[in-house]
């Protein structure tokens, strides 16, 4: 497991859906097209795809966060 997990800023998110396309293993879309994440640490092998999902989000709503931060 990596030290990172994915968080979505729901205020920023506009349901472009690129993240779920790039990282279907960790991001699914709800019935309205908004991403759902489970909050678990990402497996190492998904880290590269997760970074891409964060970088390519047009709304900058996807963040890779170190496990310890965030309350």
């Amino acid at each position: 497991m990596s030290a990172f997990r994915i968080t979505i800023d729901p205020v920023a998110c506009d349901a472009y859906g690129y993240c779920a396309e790039l990282l279907p293993e960790a991001i699914t879309l709800d019935e309205w097209g908004y991403p759902c994440v489970n909050g678990n640490p990402l497996p190492d092998e998904l880290l590269a795809a997760a970074k891409r999902a964060a970088r390519d989000c047009p709304r900058r709503a996807v963040t890779l966060q170190a496990k310890e931060s965030a309350r």
């Binding site: 729901p10 998110c13 709800d30 019935e31 309205w32």
Partner: peptide, 12 residues
């Protein structure tokens, strides 16, 4: 009216 799950989910 900011977050999709609230905007679409609550009316649903």
């Amino acid at each position: 009216g900011q977050c999709g799950p609230c905007v679409f989910g609550l009316p649903a």
